[in-house]
Design a protein around this nucleic acid. Structure first.
Lengths: 193, 193, 193, 193
DNA sequence: AATGAATGAGTGTTCATTCAT
DNA sequence: TATGAATGAACACTCATTCAT
């Protein structure tokens, strides 16, 4: 947990026994996925972003595909936890709507997450290993939503959120909050929950 | 003036005066975009798919980015026309629902189109030139939908369709038709149109 | 000699019977030689600089080497004439010195000429066809100088000028005029001429 | 620790741990510069001449320009040392003259050096990074010459040598030794040094 | 356990040259 | 006579991956 054993000097160099390195590399990989996209990720970019020698990346991950898969796995884990966290204190329907609207409109802070999500979706289209991840993710998301609405509603809500987020990502000017809100309210249905 | 005089045998060789070549290359590029993804498109793959020498691709398009942009532009044009075509004969609300459900569920025949759409969306996230295309496309789609519902409804319908199609693309087993139908009916609202 | 027969409209297009085109291309080639160097000259650059279609360059010159050789030949011709012109009115030794110092120090106006000279020299090192040109040029230069000094003096003067010009070309700040002058005066010898 | 264990047979293959490789590549680059010229130097030619795989050249030098610059830097170093070496034992004016005449006339052994020099000069005309090299070189050369003559004389001598060497390089038949000698003696001035 | 060196395949792009029109 | 289209070779450069240390 601490970083006592390094000279605290030039940054890198002499970093024996660095158990965090693996996860540091994974986080760097996610950074690269956001900025450059899945197909433009390279060992070198990840190594540079993680401030780690090139050999270290190939040492910890036997191939670029494996690194990508594990990075996405880490993303899904984090995202699922974060998603779940958003709803722990939700009790009223009003509160639920607010949380969902925030999810869609959630500014630059949520951009990283959204980009990674679509990056994963597209990559999963061609890589079965990743499709396992997207399926688990979809299942988990729906399960969370289903706590507030029936399973059918959860399904359509999920799809709607997906589309709204993608459109928000690409729009030059943000959709008015009221429109997002109206769409969500409608999808939640008349008196559900 | 006719094309009778070529051996019509092995495909390549002696293909002077080939005025369709440009569009043939664009179509090949779209094929590659579907199978390999935007970031894995290469001059060589496109040339092979178009059955054209490498130099021909670089001759007609000054850069790979330009080729990609023009291919996507061609896609948006075709897709917009096709989309519009789907609604020309729609008169009843029931018919409208059917067309939309088909759009989402529309089997492998629609898969190519859907993949290209998401490929374009993701690429547009990082390329302003492409963002112009996605915006035009979104505008056009909503305009078509708005003929049957108010502009707000058109907007949410568009987002919902986007999400439903993405999920359909990734699902291992197709969503039941009834569920898709229910989502669409709900988004269309009580008695709109 | 006149340009009557062109529509005088859009610049290019419809330029039947353009007898100057050949020399226009040669001049463009010399421009390219100055800015890009002999080894970086291409048909395309020359065509662009001459505002002429690519095919026109390959039509008038059967190969790039031939174009280069002829461009250099044109340069030597012009340069020889110019060089000769400098000395037609020289009568006193003092005037001669002034002309030679100007030749070396001659600002940006002479830069083009000097660059082409060295470009030719270096190319001639590896191309016998060009060596014929440099030899003719050297012979002519010495002949002109020999009108004012003995042949031996002309030879050393020629070499000195070559070195002074190269150094002037590369120096960040110009050599003082007095130094150039002193070198030339010394090379001319005590009371020669 | 030693290099005994490699087959030492066909040249390439199994050449792990080859610490001299960098400089071997630089020397190969200088060879290519002599035979093909700066603008015709390619990674492939250098790799072939150094008997090294292509990737090795791009690994050690991040760009062709950098390889060229470093090769020229190595040349200037060597040439400066060699130049200095020529004058260490010079004590009489007569000896000095002999050394300088040899420098100009010095047969094929000196050709390589001379060609590289002019190659560098011309390249420096368009590349500021190289201009730093030529300036250092000129400064050093003049400093050496200035040990035997005043700084002004050193300057003109330097220019004269440059010109004489270029002419010697291009001449079909060598200038008579006496002429070279006379030019140098004159440039050294009456009783200098 | 960790890494710098190494390499061969593959990329986008440029280009001299050819040729049908 | 003149030129736009076409093509195959070559180029600089990037990279995943392997391996000796």
């Amino acid at each position: 947990m601490n970083e006592v054993d390094l000279p605290a000097g030039e940054g890198r160099r002499i970093r024996r026994h660095d158990p965090e390195r693996r996860t540091r590399i994974l986080d760097a990989a996610l950074d690269v996925l956001v900025t450059d996209g899945a197909a433009n990720m390279t060992h070198r970019k990840v190594a540079a972003r993680a401030d780690v020698p090139l050999g270290s990346v190939t040492y910890h991950f036997s191939s670029l595909a494996e690194l990508q898969t594990q990075a996405f796995a880490r993303y899904v884990e984090q995202r699922t936890a974060e998603f779940e966290g958003l709803f722990t204190e939700v009790e009223t329907r009003e509160h639920l709507v607010k949380v969902l609207v925030d999810l869609v409109q959630g500014g630059p802070s949520r951009r990283r997450s959204a980009v990674l999500g679509f990056e994963l979706h597209l990559a999963a289209l061609r890589d079965p290993a990743l499709r396992a991840l997207t399926q688990k993710w979809t299942r988990d998301s729906r399960a969370v939503l289903a706590r507030f609405a029936g399973p059918d509603t959860a399904g359509r809500l999920d799809a709607l959120l997906e589309g709204l987020i993608m459109h928000a990502l690409l729009a030059t000017e943000p959709e008015p909050r009221a429109a997002t809100r109206a769409a969500i309210v409608q999808a939640l249905g008349p008196i559900t929950g």
